Lab assay of single mutants.
Amino acid sequence: MQRVNMIMAESPGLITICLLGYLLSAECTVFLDHENANKILNRPKRYNSGKLEEFVQGNLERECMEEKCSFEEAREVFENTERTTEFWKQYVDGDQCESNPCLNGGSCKDDINSYECWCPFGFEGKNCELDVTCNIKNGRCEQFCKNSADNKVVCSCTEGYRLAENQKSCEPAVPFPCGRVSVSQTSKLTRAETVFPDVDYVNSTEAETILDNITQSTQSFNDFTRVVGGEDAKPGQFPWQVVLNGKVDAFCGGSIVNEKWIVTAAHCVETGVKITVVAGEHNIEETEHTEQKRNVIRIIPHHNYNAAINKYNHDIALLELDEPLVLNSYVTPICIADKEYTNIFLKFGSGYVSGWGRVFHKGRSALVLQYLRVPLVDRATCLRSTKFTIYNNMFCAGFHEGGRDSCQGDSGGPHVTEVEGTSFLTGIISWGEECAMKGKYGIYTKVSRYVNWIKEKTKLT
């Protein structure tokens, strides 16, 4: 034993070699072989497995989906700052455009905790909710729209109204504003409101030439003092309507412009014939205590009207009353817009006519005020429907199939267009061939041609 100890002390290297040989010859039971080890760690190889990531292109799944990435790591994937920024906006807080917040056709661009709407022409605001041009839906104005110097929408209202708090709607500024039905039992019968379409306001006024200088022999019209197929109006439903009495009662109609003036057809009036105007009328054979009678003290036909040349060209006249009318729910003026808007309103496509005229061709006159909704007829169809001249200051309205029309005794009465609950004068009943005849239409004086003249002559002093 002493000898062994001496050998170990003198030859430590020998001992180490012996131990190493023993270990190498022993069977290893701690580690699995290569094949079995792979069965336990069965993990798919990654895209760049075996390579240094710093030297390969980034992978979106590896960089940002398996674990949260930084902007720089995302930049490695896209290799483009702009594309990385677009991805980053949604990656950080989701897609803010998912709810489609942009209105009126706006395009949404996502941002971090926010979004941006790219608005089409005519709109602005956070969600493109603000109209900035009158060309689109009248700028959301209830009545009139004008573009300011910086191309912003400025709404306005006709006389007797003021802008509401929203700067879009119009509200009454006087007790009985024009064009409004205020009798409670008839307010439910107000005709369907007309909503502004998209309009090209630059070209809204037709490029028409008034044929002022045409000389033409007097034409022989049949029954051209021209509501057939209409309905009984309720008291106060058309408070701007008046009836004219002269040699015979209810020979023509008219509309209240203001307390002192009536507008009617020029062919209705004769110099030297006494005319009485009755406002607030409903049943011409009954006294309903809503009527107001006034005498006409002055007749002003349009300066281009000449019955000797043509009885229905420039067929418009103004009547001055001896005493002002007292405005109330049964006696209310009709609204008159400017030339541009009167023309736009007419193009809405349908209007209402009213009167006490004959209820059928050569038949009896109506006792109760009649009204009828009539569609506008395109000019080409209008011209083809008659052998008589249709001037540019006239328009056609009615039904091709016949059966409904204005008729004798309705002449001078109103053709009105309702705009968001307020009625505007767009025409004056003038003439036609018979009444409600198939293929024939009622012919009306186009008020847009005469609004400046009306307003100039009827100013209240």
Results as ranks from 00 to 15, higher is better:
Val202His: 09
Leu244Tyr: 04
Val257Glu: 01
Thr332Pro: 00
Lys188Asp: 07
Thr225Arg: 08
Gly439Ile: 03
Glu456His: 08
Ile256Ala: 01
Asp33Glu: 09
Val257Ser: 00
Lys109Thr: 13
Glu231Ser: 08
Asp95Ala: 11
Thr381Cys: 06
Asp200Ala: 10
Asp338Ala: 06
Ser430Trp: 03
Cys252Val: 00
Ala9Tyr: 14
Met8Lys: 13
Gly409Phe: 10
Cys117Val: 02
Ser354Trp: 04
Ala233Ile: 08
Pro101Phe: 05
Ile390Met: 09
Asp93Val: 11
Asn59Ala: 05
Glu231Gly: 12
Arg384Glu: 11
Val447Leu: 08
Cys18Ser: 12
Val368Phe: 05
Val183Ala: 14
Lys45Gly: 01
Phe395Trp: 01
Glu159Asp: 12
Gly122Ala: 07
Val331Glu: 00
Phe399Ala: 08
Lys387Asn: 15
Leu376Val: 07
Phe78Arg: 02
Leu372Gly: 10
Cys134His: 03
Glu72Asp: 12
Phe121Asn: 08
Lys387Met: 07
Met65Ser: 04
Asp378Val: 03
Met437Ser: 14
Tyr305Asp: 01
Glu193Met: 15
Cys102Gln: 02
Gly160Leu: 01
Lys440Gly: 14
Gly427Thr: 02
Glu323Ser: 12
Cys335Gln: 01
Val416Gln: 06
Thr209Arg: 10
Cys178Trp: 00
Cys141Phe: 01
Lys438Ala: 08
Lys152His: 10
Ser182Leu: 06
Val92Thr: 08
Lys89Gly: 11
Ala233Ser: 09
Cys382Ser: 02
Arg191Ser: 14
Lys39Arg: 13
Pro324Val: 04
Cys128Asp: 03
Arg294Asn: 02
Leu325Gly: 00
Leu60Lys: 04
Val181Gly: 11
Pro172Gln: 07
Ser217Cys: 06
Leu20Ser: 02
Thr445Asn: 04
Ser182His: 09
Leu41Gly: 03
Ala397Met: 02
Asn245Lys: 12
Lys260Tyr: 08
Leu103Gly: 10
Ser11Arg: 14
Glu165Arg: 11
Leu130Met: 13
Asp223Glu: 08
Phe348Ile: 09
Glu116Ser: 15
Pro44Val: 15
Asn135Ala: 14
Thr194Gln: 13
Lys274Val: 07
Gly439Asp: 06
Lys438Pro: 13
Gly230Trp: 15
Glu281Met: 13
Ala265Arg: 02
Asp223Ile: 10
Val447Ala: 08
Ile297Phe: 05
Arg180Trp: 05
Ile429Val: 11
Lys168Gln: 12
Cys396Ile: 02
Glu54Trp: 00
Ala436Tyr: 08
His303Gln: 11
Asp33Ala: 12
Lys274Ile: 06
Pro333Met: 02
Val181Gln: 11
Thr16Met: 14
Leu41Cys: 03
Ser220Trp: 08
Ile390His: 11
Glu129Ile: 04
Gly398Asn: 03
Ile112Gln: 14
Asp33Met: 12
Gly254Gln: 00
